[in-house]
Design a protein around this nucleic acid. Structure first.
Length: 350
DNA sequence: AAGCCTTTCAACCGCCAACGT
DNA sequence: GACGTTGGCGGTTGAAAGGCT
């Protein structure tokens, strides 16, 4: 019936599985510039061989700049346990009360060790109830006496746990008007007291990146779109996925970033060349480009550009960026450069 | 050192609600 | 009101990493 929808996408020729750093960069660059008003159309417009759902998931769960990376704090774990006790598996609701955390992340944490922890606590409570008053005071509700258990393995060195938290409650990055937790369910509970607030530092990034509604999208932004890097995608794939834009894709063979309108490109050749130059340098700086047989050259380049910390030993610049966090000056510069999309080479090489 | 087992977590899948036509 | 489209949610899966024997 109407609800019926072909499974996400036919996935004909679409990439699946883990995202590559190149894909991450492309998605980030596109969303930073255009927002994500239409996930379904986004991959095509961004030149990604992914379905919109996959893009959304990747953005929400991993690429969003306001995400907290790293282990959960004890406070966060406590919050999850308590909220789960009230809400059940309403991961998105729980996530709404844990700024910087995603429902997927919370779900994983719960399933991996918080579930056991909560069960253990229940057992302890039951045991304490049985023994009743026999035991000494201050035991039954023992909050976190098992610090050595699961939590210790996941909250080892979380620097964000400190006192840096401040701010709004249940403010989720997902929906501005989202009702975090059902008032009916939480009527009797002081939710605010269990909330973990978002780091103030995350707010600017959040507002800058997630205001998709205020951004122009593909519909009218033809000249903007061509500024994104070009990748080689068989136009047939898009025509298979949805037949409507095969013409436009064919018109600019290989340029998957071309919008459906097929409108003329207005950027000058010089601009394109400069952008290519910029992109090439960007990829070099991230270790995504260049002869793979000479990693040293890339390292040298990184040293030269001052982007060294951006690439970790594993060579995954994106994950490194998010591990270091948006405060990382170099990373911010990178994003700024992407945002501006003004091919100004000198700005890249510090 | 090698193989096996366990844990973790990113990604996928299917369903549903909301919204637009 | 019916139908189609889209975004979002929760459950599940599978690859990778780590630990253990």
């Amino acid at each position: 019936m109407g609800r019926g929808r072909a499974p996400c996408c036919a996935k004909v020729g679409l990439n699946r599985g883990s995202w590559t750093p190149q894909e991450d960069m492309r998605l980030m660059a596109y969303i930073q510039k255009h927002g994500h008003s239409n996930w379904r159309a986004l991959p095509k417009q961004a030149g990604l061989l992914r379905c919109g759902k996959s893009c959304r998931l990747r953005w929400i769960n991993y690429l969003r700049p306001d995400l907290k990376r790293g282990n959960f704090t004890v406070e966060e774990e406590e919050t999850i346990i308590r909220l789960h006790g009230m809400l059940g598996n309403k991961w998105s609701k729980i996530a709404a009360c844990l700024p910087g955390r995603t429902d997927n992340e919370i779900k994983n944490v719960w399933n991996t060790h918080l579930k056991k922890k909560a069960a253990l606590r229940e057992q302890q409570k039951a045991g304490a109830a049985k023994n009743d008053g026999a035991a000494s005071g201050g035991d039954a509700g023992t909050p976190v006496t098992d610090s050595s258990s699961a939590s210790s393995s996941t909250t080892t060195t979380n620097s964000s746990s400190g006192g840096s938290d401040s701010g709004d409650q249940c403010d989720t990055s997902k929906e501005p008007d989202a009702v975090p937790v059902s008032p009916l369910q939480l009527e009797d509970v002081d939710v605010s007291e269990m909330l973990v607030d978002a780091p103030a530092a995350a707010q600017p990034m959040l507002s800058a990146s997630c205001s998709s509604s205020s951004l122009t999208t593909c519909a009218g932004g033809v000249e903007d779109l061509i500024e994104l890097p070009v990748i080689d995608i068989e136009p047939d794939i898009w025509s298979i996925i949805d037949g409507e834009c095969a013409d436009a894709s064919g018109a600019r063979r290989g340029d998957a970033t071309a919008p459906c309108t097929g409108a003329a490109v207005s950027t000058s050749e010089a601009g394109e060349a400069a952008f290519d130059w910029w992109l090439e340098n960007l990829e070099k700086e991230l270790g995504l480009w260049g002869p793979a047989e000479d990693p040293q050259a890339q390292t040298d380049l990184l040293d030269h550009t001052g982007f060294g910390p951006l690439v970790d030993s594993e060579g995954d610049p994106v994950s490194t960026y998010f591990q270091t966090g948006p405060d990382n000056a170099a990373a911010e510069l990178l994003l700024d450069v992407e945002l501006e999309l003004e091919p100004e080479p000198s700005a890249l090489l510090l």
